[in-house]
């Protein structure tokens, strides 16, 4: 963090960006955007841009939680199922006549609860996070199916629901509500990582859990909290999702799952823990959103989109690996 005066400032900034762990995603995002602006005139229009933001906002909320989890050196495979289960809870509450605000609260509490279950099993029962969340992936999905015998809950005609629908599709001034909402969440998530003891502990645990423990970090509590946060984002995402779609579906959207994890990894948050951040995740998410938008604009069948995001994930992590190797040879590592 050199505070070199004037002339060096911009160059230093550029250098820092190029050396950052999300450099690849950022460059790809710029390249794809330039390409699309030239060949798809619609791409660069305001409505299309806002469309990209809106259609990815559920994924982005989940990706913020997933970033926390991955930084801590663990993985939550169950967040998609948790979102679905929370959405079903939300839908059923609405249909049962619960006032909107209470139902929203209910969905969020449901998400928190599911996160708590994961966190408790991982942190206090000391079961491998992989096993726990693979198990709950299936359990939460099953619960979502059971509660309404496997059928969707349409909330479109529920009195009071239209307020939420209008809200999530509405604007604050010129900006869509969802854009503002996502920016606020992003700032909170980034601020917590950087400025709180909890955030710093997350990096410490992800980097070396025993060193963190011996230096007085409350490893169990931090791990419990990180899964609760993952559950919280699932709850929030379910409200936005149902608000937009006007229906709660009991089936997990596999493509959403992939997009979320891909955004985190493409954004440079390392699977091995201890490194990364939400800025990278934002860039990763934008990149995937732009690519998907480009495919739609070019009239490519949506069936291809999964194949493409999957390939991009593998490719980008591979390229990240190459960059890692280059960097390791030039400096760091070993000793």
């Amino acid at each position: 963090m050199s505070t070199k005066p004037k002339s060096g400032g911009f160059a230093a900034l550029v250098r820092r960006i190029f050396q950052s762990r999300y450099a690849g995603a950022l460059i790809s995002l710029v390249l794809v955007s330039v390409f699309l602006s030239i060949y798809q005139p619609v791409f660069l229009t305001w409505p299309n841009m806002m469309n990209i933001v809106k259609s990815n906002s559920v994924g982005f909320i989940l990706a913020l939680g997933a970033t926390y989890v991955v930084i801590s050196g663990t993985v939550d495979l169950s967040f998609g199922s948790a979102t679905t289960a929370s959405a079903m809870a939300f839908g059923l509450l609405l249909v049962a006549g619960t006032p909107l605000t209470l139902a929203i609260l209910g969905a969020i509490v449901a998400g928190l609860l599911l996160g708590f279950i994961n966190g408790f099993l991982v942190a206090y029962a000391k079961i491998s996070f992989f096993v726990v969340t693979l198990g709950t992936l299936s359990v939460f999905q099953s619960m979502a199916l059971v509660v309404n015998s496997g059928t969707s809950v349409s909330v479109f005609s529920v009195p009071g629901f239209s307020a939420l629908n209008q809200f999530v599709n509405g604007n604050i001034g010129p900006l869509p509500v969802l854009l503002v909402f996502n920016i606020v969440l992003f700032l909170i998530a980034g601020g917590v990582l950087r400025f709180t003891a909890f955030g710093r502990s997350l990096y410490a645990i992800g980097s070396n859990i025993e060193a963190a423990r011996l230096n007085g970090i409350n490893v169990k509590r931090v791990l419990l909290l990180v899964f609760i946060i993952s559950g919280l984002t699932a709850g929030l995402a379910s409200v936005v999702q149902v608000g937009r779609l006007t229906v709660a579906s009991p089936n997990v959207d596999m493509n959403l799952l992939l997009t979320v994890l891909a955004a985190v990894l493409i954004g440079g948050t390392a699977m091995t823990g201890g490194e990364g951040g939400v800025l990278g995740t934002l860039i990763g998410m934008l990149f995937l959103g732009v690519v998907q938008n480009g495919l739609t604009l070019s009239g490519v069948s949506s069936f291809w989109q999964g194949a493409l995001s999957g390939s991009i994930l593998i490719l980008s992590v591979w390229l990240g690996g190459i960059r890692g190797v280059l960097r390791a040879q030039k400096q760091t590592q070993l000793e």
Partner: peptide
């Protein structure tokens, strides 16, 4: 194995023990 945070910088490695 038990003391350093290998992927973090010097400042964070010091500050980890002073977090409270």
């Amino acid at each position: 194995g038990c003391a350093i945070l290998p992927v973090r910088n010097i400042a964070e490695n010091f500050a980890m023990a002073w977090m409270d």
